[in-house]
């Protein structure tokens, strides 16, 4: 092979490789010049992941630039938030997170960020449906039957949730505190993992987000209770936690946050883009498929929501004796 052909081949290879990678450059006000990464702290296939992906697609249409979802699981969603802070505050890395990670998880665990100061909220966009499911062949037809069994067998009932301090965990803690039952908590990284453990018979029940829909509709699992203000339109016969006699409604809102140092002019562009994206028809259809209710909090409203939630949940957790004080200082 002659030198020239070899040279040309090399050039061709370099060019082919170079085209495979996104072109990156320093952040300028002309956001977005390159793909935006949206971090997600829970496993693919979960409602957080699915709704973030739907939102990313809708935002792409607005921006004309790819919005790439990247799952960084672990620590009940805190790993992704920590990962966000490791990136430049240039608007090219954002994080989709349930508000509960900033509120509940941060009070139950010492997390490596200041939940109310390290981030700039962009928007809150949906609220998940939560529920308690058991296997189809389990003997319990209602939550009351399950609770009665758990009372008779202290420490004999195992349950899966989406992580320590998550809203799904909090619901069971609430129930356990009220009924004074002792059950064993097995934390998983997301609802799909928790459901798999349930279907495999490794836990007795699972407190999870609406990923249970295919399993319940497919006749493998039975839904005992949901945790919304009202009954889910998809499961009108299933009572809510409130109807079952427990003072618990899901208070988590799925949101997008940026690092706190985001330049205001970029923040404005991002907020406008997402505000348009949440009106996208395909986005709304995607939410409906997984039983998520669309809501909209702008940056300011979501910030106020977080401040208020912090106090409410703190009072709740301390009065229930679950914590003495918040494990992480908020600011």
């Amino acid at each position: 092979m002659s030198g020239r052909i070899r040279f040309l081949l090399t050039v061709a290879v370099v060019a082919a490789i170079a085209m495979g990678f996104p072109v990156t450059g320093p952040a300028r006000a002309a956001w977005p010049e390159r793909p935006v990464t949206l971090l997600v702290g829970f496993a693919p296939g979960g409602t957080m992941d699915l709704s973030a992906r739907a939102l990313a697609r809708a935002t792409e249409k607005v921006l004309g630039k790819p919005v790439v979802v990247e799952n960084k699981t672990g620590g009940t969603g805190t790993v992704a938030l920590a990962a966000l802070l490791a990136q430049k505050a240039d608007g090219y890395t954002l994080c989709a997170t349930p508000s509960s990670v900033l509120i509940r998880v941060s009070q139950m665990q010492r997390v490596p960020f200041k939940p109310l100061a390290s981030f700039r909220p962009i928007l809150g966009f949906t609220t998940p449906q939560l529920g308690i499911v058991v296997k189809q062949d389990a003997p319990w037809k209602s939550l009351a039957e399950l609770v009665a069994y758990a009372k008779k067998h202290p420490g004999g009932v195992k349950y899966a949730t989406t992580g320590v301090g998550s809203t799904t965990h909090a619901a069971v803690e609430e129930l356990a505190a009220r009924e004074k039952v002792r059950m064993i908590h097995i934390p998983y990284k997301g609802s799909i993992e928790a459901l798999t453990a349930l279907l495999g018979g490794h836990v007795d029940f699972a407190s999870v987000t609406s990923e249970f829909i295919p399993s319940v509709k497919g006749g493998q699992a039975r839904l005992l209770v949901t945790m919304g203000e009202k009954r889910s339109p998809k499961f009108p016969r299933v009572p809510t936690m409130k109807e079952a006699g427990y003072d618990f409604t899901n208070d988590a809102v799925y949101a997008v946050v940026a690092p706190a140092g985001l330049p205001p002019e970029i923040a404005k562009k991002i907020e406008e883009a997402f505000a348009r994206a949440v009106r996208d028809r395909e986005f709304l259809e995607a939410l409906d498929r997984i039983d998520l209710v669309p809501v909209y909090y702008n940056s300011k409203a979501f910030n106020e929501f977080l401040q208020a939630q912090w106090k409410i949940i703190n009072r709740h957790l301390t009065s229930a004796g679950l914590i003495r004080q918040a494990a992480t200082p908020p600011e």
């Binding site: 790993v79 802070l85 490596p112």
Partner: peptide, 22 residues
């Protein structure tokens, strides 16, 4: 290295933000 997968405690991160995610 990174945050504990269950309790979010820091492990072997030496406070380096980039190491939080492992």
């Amino acid at each position: 290295v990174g945050l504990d997968p269950i309790t979010s405690e820091q492990r072997m991160t030496f406070g380096v933000l980039n190491l939080f995610e492992g």
